[in-house]
Amino acid sequence: MSSHSKPLRIALLTYSTKLRGSVVHTLELAEALHAIGQDVCVYALDKDGTGFDRPLSCPHTLITAQPAPADIEALIQQRIQEFVEHFSQSSETYDCYHAQDCIGANALSLLRQRQRLTHVVRTVHHIEAYNSPYLQACQERSIRDPDLCLCVSTRWQTELQQQYQIQAPRVINGVDTLRFSAEQDGSEPLLKQRLGIKNGLFYLTVGGIEPRKNAIALLQAFVQILADHPQAQLMIAGGATLFDYQEYRQEFFALVEQTGVRIGESLLLPGVIPDAELPALYRLADAFVFPSVKEGWGLVVLEAIASGIPVITANQPPFTEFLTAQQALLVDPRSPTAIAQAMRSVLAPRLAASLVQHSQTILPHYSWNASAQMHLVHYHKLLTSNNQPLTNA
């Protein structure tokens, strides 16, 4: 329990039930707040009726997301409206309404204009550069309208200050070291067989084929690895997103065809991995390769570290905020040759063991309990500054 005796009522909004970074952050934060006695509920748009791919101990409400048009602007408008309609009809009230993304924040902004709620919080995980004026305006509102913006990295703290003159407190991400660990649970052999992972060299990345994940540069690097290690495999797992990145994906698969990389043999594209299988998948990898060029913080990097495998990632913030050259191989993400060189270097057993050993010292500094406590401090500061009475818990 926090130092404040009365629990807060907190609504946490997320745009999806599919477990990408901000969605995982939402669920882990909600569970941690619930564990320390707060009255928290997760609200999530559910487009296929299957809910979350993990059990939750905290209350949660799934809002049906109807089939949406292919046009991305119309899709975003519809998703915002689905949140608005739900809360307009709900009798539930909360002390804080906290959105983790642009969709939820825009919905809360509209609801506050209609005097349906107060105390809007937004976590800005990263800022996108949209070509669409509509999407750019949505992002602007989602950052400027909330009473409080939070960030998970110094990089985006600085961006909010420079671009928006907003002082956003920094909160941390966490990792569940009981769930993600180097200790095998016996599921690994069957998972390996089902996913087509061979006994040779196996590289893993999580995040899908999209521009900010830098999938094309990673593929170019992997082609160089295949020249020396023809039996090597690269798995690009994940990929559930609102945006289809069709042009980028076409370029990616054109390169696959051009280079003769065999999908299902050398290149494994399993899509979204069931949440229960993700810890074992990390443990199967010889190295985690994540040359992302734009990341809020990089939860998957911490999960890989907790799983006891060496990490290769971009030599830029936010990764350099919590990783040193002794804890990960930090590379120029724009250079496929540099990525490939790191993928070769990490094969040296002594270097791999050293990276794993040094990276373990990071883990105690990132817990979801600590993150929840930090959030509570900022929630209470917001409520106190507005001198607003709390709802009845």
Rank of each mutant, 00 (worst) to 15 (best):
P146I: 00
K192V: 06
A137P: 14
G21Q: 05
Q163G: 08
G200L: 14
L351D: 05
L29K: 03
I339A: 04
A68T: 07
H34N: 05
A68V: 11
E277N: 12
I143F: 13
A137C: 15
E303Q: 13
S109A: 13
A328Y: 03
H229P: 07
T14V: 14
R114Y: 09
Y245Q: 00
L390I: 14
V24D: 03
H60A: 08
P318M: 07
F180V: 00
T61S: 11
R179D: 03
F243R: 10
H378N: 07
R144V: 15
N131K: 13
H34K: 05
R170T: 02
T384N: 07
F83K: 06
E295H: 04
L347G: 08
A227L: 11
Q78Y: 05
E159H: 08
E31R: 04
A105K: 13
R262H: 12
P279A: 05
I263P: 03
H119F: 10
R144M: 14
E251S: 11
Q157S: 02
G296D: 06
D145S: 06
D46P: 07
T324W: 13
Q167E: 11
Q165C: 09
Q341M: 11
P67N: 06
N386F: 02
Q81E: 10
E321K: 04
V120R: 09
T205S: 06
Q184D: 02
Q81C: 05
H4F: 14
Q258F: 02
V331G: 01
S187F: 06
Q388L: 11
I63P: 04
G49K: 11
L382T: 00
L218T: 09
L191P: 01
T93I: 14
A314G: 12
V120F: 03
S3K: 14
W368F: 03
L135H: 12
F87Q: 02
P310N: 01
R112N: 06
W368G: 03
G208N: 05
K18Q: 15
P310R: 02
I273W: 01
L117R: 10
A99V: 13
H25W: 05
V293R: 11
A30W: 00
G49I: 09
L148S: 00
Q327P: 02
A129I: 09
S371Y: 03
S181I: 00
T26M: 08
T17H: 13
F319S: 08
S16P: 13
E82K: 00
L19M: 11
L255S: 05
D275N: 15
Q316E: 10
A232C: 07
A32H: 01
V223E: 03
Y94A: 06
G207M: 10
Q231L: 01
S16C: 15
E303L: 04
N369R: 15
R54I: 15
A217C: 03
S307R: 01
P318D: 08
L190W: 06
V223L: 01
N106D: 12
A215C: 01
G104C: 12
E277Y: 04
P270I: 09
A348G: 02
D53P: 13
A342T: 12
I263C: 14
R249S: 07
Q224L: 09
L108I: 11
N392C: 15
F202D: 01
Q316H: 12
G208W: 00
P310H: 02
P55W: 05
P189R: 00
A348M: 06
A340V: 03
S109I: 05
I263W: 04
L330R: 05
